[in-house]
Design a protein around this nucleic acid. Structure first.
Lengths: 145, 145
DNA sequence: ATAACACATGAACTTAACTTTAGGTCAAGT
DNA sequence: ACTTGACCTAAAGTTAAGTTCATGTGTTAT
């Protein structure tokens, strides 16, 4: 069993955050001894899942829902699995979005490299047909390949 | 030149958001005619960059800073390039983080698939040495390869 | 003329996820 | 005895990025 201070160090999370999570119902089976929280293996594992679900973009109230499912036992396995499948899909979608963002950022890096070499954006701008960065991006991609 | 309503449709952004962006200084050279905003090609391109920088996780106040650099002319090319390089690095880091999250989510999907097949988590839990999902994840990865 | 519409403003409101503050308990060391 | 340190609570404050509201203006269709 760990105290809140130890758990705080273990996870690099402020104590206030752990108390906040508890208040929000993220540790449904957290025990106390004379008012003091006793973080057991259940809560440690819960925190690992919380970190994962948070990183996946899930809100606290939905993480709470998941923790409740866990507390309800084997009858909720299917629901829990579905939840993870949904999170997986969400993260995959986010990664696609970020890849597109990354492409645009790479293009912009190239754009300013070129502008610095040229000393102006004139040549670059003359390459753009009618304010269509999608098109110039294609030019850029072709130039790279 | 476009009205705020047209731009709203073009980008799928609420009018209130466009006004908010303007108020925050994201269109430093936006013109008006008798009080009404005139969105020109400059602002349209600005919005494309805004969407990109927002997707990269940049805050509005820092996007404003970038737009100000743009309005200052060629002397800020180097700063602008540096900003895009930094954004690129941030997005790459975020994608790494998401990849790790995805790995954990995939593991959890497999975990619950297995738990459903088994009808309980008993076998799975007996595979875990001492509450270390990192270890079981390694077992899982080995099983996959 | 009057109604409808798209535009405008400033100020207040919203939401999520914390953080901070103010005050209190309790055990251990000096 | 007293101070220190780790724990506790409830309530208020914070921040970002908008959204909503109340109110007003100006142009166009009936």
């Amino acid at each position: 069993m760990h105290t809140i201070g130890r758990v705080s160090e273990m996870f690099g999370l402020p104590i206030s955050t752990l108390r906040y999570y508890d208040k929000e119902g993220l540790f449904p089976s957290l025990q106390r001894r004379s008012g003091i929280r006793q973080f057991g293996e259940t809560e440690i594992e819960a925190l690992r899942v919380i970190e994962c679900l948070k990183a996946s973009g899930l809100e606290i109230k939905d993480i709470k829902r998941f923790m409740q499912l866990c507390a309800e036992g084997p009858s909720t396995y299917a629901q829990r699995r579905k939840m993870f499948e949904a999170r997986k899909a969400a993260v995959e979608a986010e990664m696609c979005r970020l890849q597109k963002t990354l492409d645009m950022l790479s293009f912009k890096c190239w754009y300013y490299e070129t502008a610095i070499e040229d000393g102006s954006e004139d040549r670059l701008k003359s390459m753009i047909p009618d304010g269509l960065p999608v098109e110039i991006k294609r030019l850029y991609d072709n130039a790279r390949s």
